[in-house]
Amino acid sequence: MASHARNRMTETGIPRVAMVQGKIPEHELNAVYDPMVNLILRGSKTMTVGDQTLHYNPASYFVMSVDLPAIGTVRPSASGEPYLAVALTLQPAVISALMADLPECADKTRTKTEAGFSVASVTADLMDAWVRMLRLMERPADIPALAPVYEREILYRVLQGPQGSMLRDIAIPDSAIARITLAIQRIRRDFAEPLTVEALAQLAAMSVSAFHRHFKSVTALSPLQYQKQVRLLKARTLLVGGGKSVTSAAFEVGYESPTQFSREYARAFGLPPGRDSEQILAKYAEGVR
């Protein structure tokens, strides 16, 4: 099954399931990640969101319940085998339908807003469900009938684990995470536009203080820090893949001052934008992945 995966997220033919293998370019690991359950099969990964860093390997799995800008680093296994991981993108409608069949899940509520990302230990039951899901890659004719069943089982196992509350919040329309997600979607769509915390709080139907508190609890970032991360990640894509100049990229992502853009870019990625993009393109030219 690993032969299907490349060093970027590769579709498997199974809805919402993708795989990745090998040495992934650093700038592709620095991205806005969609809500997902991520399981490592070989190697290890480090994810940094805001000021929080999480480490996980084949003994653990990662759940992200909201779109988050993060910095990732992957490593091969101790024996030198390439990094290999699989991800299931989370869809609220699927989780909601599962919860409707499991009323006890809806009764478990949290008394406070927690981070929208975490790591937990893999159980034998969860791994077994994943193995049966991935075996469908060898039997594509079975995917329409069995993939939805295995997806529900994977989600069920996560719901029963320590991160189940995050999945429940995704499926409850009026939960804090669901309302914060509305603001996140607005930031991602209009990241280049001036946005105020007041307008985002109104969209989330929260007071400004409550919105700021919940947003930072969920994402480990303030709303404006989140917007800045999205802008810088988009600018990096424009510089590397779009052939934009530093000034053009700065203006396109919403900066009024190229100088400020360069300063914040260097703080985020370790190099000024021009040098950073040149280094990335040089690695591609040399075939370094």
Rank of each mutant, 00 (worst) to 15 (best):
I154F: 02
L155C: 08
R157F: 04
L159C: 15
L159D: 00
G161P: 06
G161M: 05
Q163V: 00
D169A: 15
I170H: 00
A171G: 11
P173Y: 02
D174N: 13
S175M: 04
I177G: 00
I177T: 03
I180L: 02
I180M: 10
T181C: 04
I184H: 01
I187L: 13
R188A: 03
R189W: 03
D190T: 14
F191Q: 05
F191L: 00
A192C: 11
P194L: 14
E198C: 04
E198W: 01
A204K: 04
S207D: 09
V208E: 12
A210L: 09
H212Y: 13
V218R: 00
T219H: 11
A220W: 05
A220Y: 12
S222R: 08
Q225R: 14
K228H: 09
K228D: 09
V230Y: 05
V230W: 01
V230Q: 05
L232Y: 07
L232C: 11
R236N: 12
L238Y: 08
G241H: 05
G242L: 08
G243I: 13
G243A: 13
G243Q: 03
T247L: 11
T247G: 10
S248A: 15
A250E: 00
F251E: 10
G254H: 10
Y255T: 04
P258M: 13
Q260W: 07
F261N: 01
S262F: 05
E264D: 15
Y265Q: 05
Y265D: 08
R267C: 09
G270D: 05
P272H: 01
